[in-house]
Design a protein around this nucleic acid. Structure first.
Lengths: 223, 223
DNA sequence: AGACTACATATTACATGTAAGTATGTCAAG
DNA sequence: CTTGACATACTTACATGTAATATGTAGTCT
């Protein structure tokens, strides 16, 4: 009868957190930019407490870095950091996919399908930001396939950081299309419950991304 | 000239956090026990702000669970949770050890040696808590071997949770000795830079722990 | 110019105030 | 003995106050 599903979980902290989270991943808040608690609280018209807690959350998630008595700044990853994140993600997502090929439910596959669909649309419409958003979603879903809470959570955190890390690295539409076809290969292997094939497809996906990053790194080192 | 290495990093938050962290892992604060901010602040003689932030940290680390408007309690893991944590740890530590066999420095090996030594002493003196502490340290070092920041951090967080999760599960000295010999096998393989052998030794280690947990689980299900 | 100092400004870190929500105990009714 | 109403105590969530600290800037001396 009462639609008050979660009337009381409406905490300011969560709203502020989600807002900052979105602004960081969308590039509205740039890497290195200070997250001044009084400043943000003024802009949002709330007190400093919920803002402080939201910023702490971001720090815990690895999306902001804090120095004692100097405050927090939006995390600023170098290409080396991006490669390290990629290495960690490869490990976690590989395991998730292997487990997922065994454990995934119909609901999991349905969710994957939907994301792949919206990804396809983004490509057709050359919607860069849209693709990145569904890419984020796709990899987070891979994490949850494992049906292992810790694994899923870490995959999500790392993918967020990875997105922020690669934000500066420009990517062409051609590369996005490559990524999409690789996503399709992963999905098809998963759907046929073929663990090894899914793992192989995922490794290919990461291999290409890594090589792309390494090329960038090489370019930057010889200007 | 100036010895003020970090005079100013002495924040109350950090002290409160470390205290609570220690008390949780040492079993002084029991799983399920509420972490009341005003209560703790009264006991420690500090205001509520640093306590609140420390508790939030613990929640972010997975050592405490929070429900909106109900506060946080010390994380309470069941045997199923323990198995999931073990699964995640196996994935991360396996990767760390494989990378570590290639990347580990002399300093890494020295640190490992020292921990193994203190572990041996704990066994000889039948010092249960002492062993658990050095076991914690050993596995965290395995994580840092990868020289991958994200990987190392996650290995540490998971091991802390795992310790808390298995705290209720009694373990005999015999099992600890088994664990120690397995640690030695891992170390020796690492020192000879044999990635596959190190990985195999680690998997054996986790296999035994997992089987031990599964036995417990089976026992509990048929009382 | 360059470096140092003094001052002005803003922020952090901690403390405290308070309305609203949640848990707990008591007691009467069924 | 259990159930539900109500009063009570405690806590969370948010707001705000403030001293210590960091940062930016102008001015001074070399």
């Amino acid at each position: 009868m009462k639609p008050q599903v979660k009337l009381h979980s409406e905490r300011l902290v969560d709203k502020v957190y989600e807002l900052l989270h979105r602004d960081i991943l969308s590039g509205k808040l740039l890497p290195g930019q200070p997250l001044s608690v009084p400043e943000i609280s003024r802009q949002l018209g709330v007190s400093r407490s919920p803002v402080r807690e939201a910023v702490l959350q971001l720090v815990a998630d690895g999306l902001a870095w804090e120095e004692a008595r100097k405050g927090a700044v939006v995390a600023q990853f170098g290409l080396e950091d991006a490669l390290q994140l990629l290495e960690a993600r490869e490990v976690l997502e590989l395991a998730s996919v292997r487990l997922g090929a065994v454990r995934a439910t119909d609901a999991d596959f349905a969710a994957l399908k939907q994301v792949l669909h919206s990804q396809q649309l983004s490509i057709q419409k050359a919607n860069f930001r849209g693709y990145l958003a569904s890419d984020l979603e796709f990899h987070k879903l891979l994490g949850s396939l494992s049906h292992n809470h810790a694994l899923g959570r870490m995959v999500g955190l790392l993918k967020d950081q990875s997105l922020l890390a690669q934000d500066s690295v420009s990517r062409s539409l051609v590369q996005l299309e490559l990524g999409f076809t690789e996503h399709l290969a992963i999905f098809e292997a998963l759907e046929s419950r073929n663990s090894d094939e899914a793992a192989e497809a995922l490794l290919q996906h990461f291999k290409r991304i890594r090589e792309s990053l390494e090329n960038w790194l090489a370019l930057l080192r010889q200007p």
